[in-house]
Design a protein around this nucleic acid. Structure first.
Lengths: 146, 146
DNA sequence: CTTTGTGCAAACGATTTGCAGGATG
DNA sequence: CATCCTGCAAATCGTTTGCACAAAG
């Protein structure tokens, strides 16, 4: 799921006038390494697993920087926390209502979709589908909540 | 966009063993009255416009109660805040990237969509489409952010 | 009357900010 | 070497909680 070389990451940051720092690389690398969609705190914990590498504030700021240059996306599918995704190509999401796990769905699985005419005045630019259900690890659960 | 009579609301609460209180009615009524998708704080402000009617904690708790009985949905399309929607029938959402306004899209506008086979192990139960773009009130904006 | 809801204020968790020192271009 | 970034701690914002009183069934 490798998406950009470190050269490209470096260049992308520079192009937008942002500096290239080890912390930003570390955050991006971690997002790539984990296929899932971690929260800022999970990334922080990961990075500091062995020795302290980054502070909390730095991880947040790195995520914002990476987001600003288009290397990382924010995913809002859970109450209270932002999750992050290094896959910035268009794609859809699946969310397990049992464990909250989030998984990418390839764009072309839904290839048949075409944007309908919305009410006049709305200019649609992009869209994505969110699918909710249960994943393998989650046995049948009675309630749905949200 | 009236959806349930106060009788139905009352009955729905009772059926789930929750009490029927003026505050819960007020919150639900406010959600119906505003077509948009207000935050808890906006509802609180609305309700206390003239005279103090509900406390902050009560609005939050009323929203949870209404959500639990299926009269209200939570909408997560913005960082940091939950928005609420009295339209609990399946529908899609449009979000303006300029002002953040959220608007319902009728379900059947996307009638052609059919859920594809996801990877084995995922059991899809429901889905919805989120469209992002610009609304009437928002002139062309260069940046996208999120 | 018993139980659940309300309201206040304090607590909480995720994210942001101010500021001093450090690293990048 | 000027500017931007990091790291720490304190601040902030949305939401939750504890508890005493009030109201619903």
């Amino acid at each position: 799921m490798q998406q950009y070389t470190s050269q490209q990451v470096s260049q992308t940051l520079k192009d937008k006038g942002l500096r290239v720092t080890p912390q930003r690389f570390a955050v991006y690398a971690n997002l790539l390494a984990r296929g899932d969609h971690p929260t800022a705190e999970q990334i922080l914990t990961d990075l500091n697993q062995d020795a302290p590498q980054s502070s909390q504030a730095t991880v947040y700021s790195a995520l914002q920087a990476l987001r600003k240059v288009g290397l990382v996306r924010e995913v809002l599918l859970e109450e209270g926390v932002s999750r992050y995704d290094a896959n910035v190509r268009p794609h859809h999401h699946f969310r397990c209502r049992g464990c909250g796990a989030i998984e990418d769905i390839p764009w072309d699985l839904f290839q048949s979709i075409q944007l309908p005419d919305l009410r006049p005045g709305l200019r649609a630019e992009r869209y994505e589908v969110t699918v909710e259900g249960l994943c393998d690890r989650c046995p049948e659960l009675a309630e749905a909540e949200s």
